[in-house]
């Protein structure tokens, strides 16, 4: 993206800008993103504070934060930022960096959900909820939450017992493999 300012020479800020394609360093701390963030009350750092941590190069604080995993990607911040920073894309970049660097996460639910969801897509070409939820629960050890919802969803036909496999599942598997190769390119 054009007009990126290399603020303070922070290596972290430069990497986040490169990965997210958005000028994080242009943030002037107006807090509009934080004011409108629906998840603000639960976050350890508000979105504008996440931006500031990036400016200051505070890598372990920002990559180890709850905030980046609590972001629901609702895009309110991105829509409202007066500096046209894609704040939600910044959160994505930070999540990807946290996984890449094997940072100790405050809790692994977000990571395990994404892993279980994408594993299901890789296998069937589409999400198979029952399989995805089982894997997610095994991986997090969170076996009993929401179990009361299962009979209700089964009764309403909202939780199919078999995957609705795509005829292009093989193609999807190849796409996952090649995407991994691409991500490894320098």
């Amino acid at each position: 993206m054009a007009n990126t300012i290399q603020w303070n020479g922070s290596e972290l800020a430069m990497e986040v800008e490169h990965r997210s394609g958005t000028p994080v360093s242009a943030c002037f701390q107006c807090h509009k993103c934080s004011t409108g963030c629906p998840i603000g009350p639960e976050m350890d750092f508000l979105p504008s504070q996440v931006m500031r941590l990036v400016h200051l190069g505070m890598e372990s604080e920002v990559l180890g934060s709850q905030a980046i995993w609590l972001c629901a990607s609702c895009e309110a911040c991105t829509t409202r930022c007066p500096q046209s920073i894609d704040v939600a894309a910044t959160m994505d970049a930070l999540r990807i960096m946290a996984i890449d660097r094997q940072v100790t996460l405050p809790d692994a639910h977000g990571k395990q959900f994404n892993r279980s969801f994408l594993g299901s897509v890789r296998r069937h070409g589409r999400v198979f909820e029952m399989g995805m939820m089982t894997l997610y629960k095994l991986r997090t050890g969170d076996l009993f939450s929401d179990m009361d919802k299962v009979p209700q969803m089964l009764a309403k036909g909202k939780l199919p017992l078999l995957p609705n496999r795509s005829g292009s599942a093989g193609e999807v598997r190849e796409v996952f493999r090649r995407a991994e190769e691409e991500e490894k390119r320098p």
């Binding site: 990965r19 990607s73 959160m91 994505d92 970049a93 999540r95 990807i96 996984i99 977000g110 959900f113 994404n114 892993r115 969801f117 994408l118 897509v121 070409g125 589409r126 999400v127 795509s166 005829g167 292009s168 599942a169 193609e171 999807v172 796409v175 996952f176 090649r178 995407a179 991994e180 691409e182 991500e183």
Partner: peptide, 21 residues
């Protein structure tokens, strides 16, 4: 033979997959 769009787990995990799917 449509395939999953990747939804939030893809864009939160892999920039290239989030476009390719």
């Amino acid at each position: 033979d449509w395939v999953c769009c990747g939804s939030t787990p893809a864009h939160a995990s892999s920039a290239s997959l989030a476009v390719a799917l």
